Amino acid sequence: MAEDLSPAPPRPATPRARDLLTRRLADIVCLPSSQIAPQERWMVADVLDELLRAADVGLRAKVSKRLAQQGEAPRALLRRLAHDEFEVAEPLLRRSQALSDFDMMDIAQGSSALHRLELARRESVSETVAAALAAGGDMDVITALLRNDGARLASQTVEVMVRVAAEHDAIARLLIRRPELRPAQALALFWSVSHDLRRMILDRFAASRQILQDAAEDVFPLAAREAEPDTAVQEALAYIDRRQRDRRAAEVTPYGSLEGLIERASQIGFTEELRAEAAVLANIQRDLLNRMIDDFGGEPLAILAKATGLSRQHLSGLIEGSGRTDAFNRVQQAILVFDTMSVDKAQTVLRYWNWVIARSARGD
């Protein structure tokens, strides 16, 4: 038999050869743009990508660590490594500046909780990436975003977090401190959180309306003389006005005043008739009054009492009339708020709540 002189098939590259070639290609990919053309970088990146598909985790992690420091690294290669096992992806997720918002949003939607958590801890997190991270509802990720001063939160993202915070005081505590939280959002959250968090909300968001009152001082008589009242102006002035009670209602009420009604309620409880009349006298929506009376704490009634000029005694009557068995605790919580809040700030809170309910009733 004739001897087979055909060349032997090439042996597969040893791990050492693959490691060396991978390092060399990574060096080329990481060259600055002044030393390599874009077409050359993409070509080398394609070969490197194929090598990494068959490489072990340790080698992939080494390349990922190199690429994390490069601002001009090939995007396709970066995205694949950023979706890789967390050990491989971690350096890119933490500090790569070459990952775009689109890349990070894709990672947030399709990778593990550890990937999302690392993105939330980046030095800078854009509004769009933060929105994608928060959408998953993961408590650890939301906590990391709220603790990250470099994360920017869009209003819609804050709305998502408000819903989560309503059931988790730890999230609420962080959210209340964020600069993106708006008064309407904070005062909506108020109803769902504990007593100490309620005081935090009031301390920060119960602002004075003095600047509005000064600006609108000469608008009140002008609006009153208009033949066809402007609804939007009337609503705005109602929010700004220093007066809370409905004076015309007080002239015809069978109870003589809001105080007289509360004295009656403390004796027989807040019947449906008394609730309806109290809402009219206090000049607030009936649904808001019901919510304040039925609330687990005394703070809302303290705000109502302060905003309408009631005394401490009548605040106690409000709580007694609510018929709650934990009236003593409600009184203590209420007095704490009543004694530390000004009339103007109490009116600000009350009118925010009333405004939201009125708009909701109209379907705005």
Rank of each mutant, 00 (worst) to 15 (best):
L5R: 13
P7V: 11
P12E: 05
D19S: 15
R24C: 06
R24H: 13
I28V: 15
Q35R: 14
I36P: 04
R41L: 02
D46K: 12
D49N: 09
A54S: 15
A55Q: 01
V63K: 09
S64L: 02
K65Q: 08
E72W: 03
R75S: 13
A76Q: 12
A76V: 13
L77S: 05
A82M: 08
D84Y: 02
A89F: 07
E90H: 12
R95Q: 06
Q97H: 10
D101Y: 05
D101G: 12
G110I: 00
A113T: 14
A120D: 09
E127I: 09
D138I: 08
M139R: 13
V141Q: 04
L145P: 03
L145A: 03
A151G: 04
R152W: 01
T157N: 06
A166F: 05
H168T: 09
D169W: 04
D169T: 08
I171M: 02
L174G: 01
I176R: 03
R177L: 08
R178Y: 07
P179N: 06
A184F: 11
L189R: 04
V193N: 05
A207N: 05
S208I: 05
Q213K: 11
A215K: 15
F220R: 11
P221H: 10
A232R: 13
Q234A: 15
A238Y: 03
D241H: 14
R245H: 07
R248M: 13
A250Y: 00
L258K: 07
E263Y: 06
A278S: 11
A278W: 00
A278H: 00
A279S: 10
V280C: 00
I284E: 01
Q285S: 15
L288Q: 11
D294Q: 11
G297V: 00
A302V: 00
A307E: 02
S311Y: 04
Q313E: 10
G317K: 02
L318G: 04
E320N: 09
N329Y: 13
N329R: 11
Q332L: 12
I335Q: 10
M341P: 00
S342E: 10
S342K: 05
Q347G: 14
Q347L: 15
Q347Y: 02
W353A: 03
W355I: 00
S360H: 13
R362C: 03
G363R: 08
